[in-house]
């Protein structure tokens, strides 16, 4: 379980997050949506232990988050952090050597699903294939928390589709909680259980996606537009 208690984050004088209270339970895929600069990536980095809160506490399964939380949290960065001279196979082997929870067999299975050749050099991969490789490396880890920062951004529709299907196929929804930030709301909408809407460093909505359709007859895009415009009382 991921828990935020009165969490605030400032970068020098700029406020990135304000007094966030949040509880996320396992067995769910949660989308984190909002404008650029609203605090999505900061939220993920706090859970990954890559940055520390200015105030408040972030815990994962009851543990206060430090850099060492990476034992329990897989984090897919928005950036490409690969060694170009590695091949796909070497990169998988490298990850396996870094994380005891890394499942080599699962990695191979996801690699085949993503149609990546093991002997391709990373520096020769297209952007789409680098996106696919990141999914392989992230989902092969058997950890309770998987964080994905913009896994679909800048990729063509076929790659986006492969990634969404890869998520459905390889996430362990018995045990894992998956948190995805994205602007591609339409593409992830059908795989989300819950959604968090963030604006100006505050969470202004937290909903179950099916209940939103059921009770308010709203899809995510309509709901987001409405709440952002202030027509709709945000429910947290």
């Amino acid at each position: 379980m991921i828990k935020f208690e009165h969490v605030g984050k400032r970068y020098l004088k700029k406020v990135a997050l304000k007094d966030i209270n949040l509880e996320l339970k396992p067995g769910k895929i949660v989308g984190l949506i909002g404008e650029n600069g609203s605090g999505k990536s900061t939220t993920l980095k706090l859970i990954a232990g890559l940055i520390q809160p200015t105030s408040g506490v972030v815990t994962v399964n009851g543990r206060r988050v430090t850099r060492r939380i990476s034992e329990h949290v897989a984090y897919l960065s928005e950036l490409d952090e690969f060694y170009g001279f590695f091949t796909v196979g070497e990169m998988i082997a490298f990850f396996a050597s870094q994380y005891p929870d890394f499942n080599r067999e699962k990695a191979e299975e996801i690699r085949r699903f993503m149609k990546l050749a093991p002997d391709s050099k990373i520096k020769n991969l297209s952007k789409g294939n680098r996106g696919r490789l990141k999914i392989v490396l992230t989902l092969a880890r058997e950890v309770p928390v998987v964080l994905m920062d913009e896994p679909l951004s800048g990729l063509d529709p076929m790659v986006r589709d492969a990634i969404v299907k890869g998520l459905i196929s390889f996430i362990d929804l018995e045990r894992q909680i998956v948190l995805i930030t994205t602007h591609e709301i339409k593409e992830v909408e059908t795989i989300l259980d819950e959604v968090l809407l963030i604006k100006g460093g505050e969470i202004i909505g937290h909903k179950n996606v099916e209940e939103l359709r059921d009770r308010e007859n709203l899809g995510l895009v309509e709901w987001m537009t409405k709440v952002y415009a202030g027509d709709c009382p945000p429910t947290v």
Binding site: G27, K28, I29, D161, V164, K165, I168, S169, L173, T190, I191, L192, D193, E210
Partner: peptide, 17 residues
């Protein structure tokens, strides 16, 4: 449940439901 999820692009929890 998982295969139906992949075929239809839907969360396995939703297929279960």
């Amino acid at each position: 449940v998982r295969d139906m999820g992949v075929q239809s692009g839907v969360n396995p929890n939703t297929v279960q439901r």
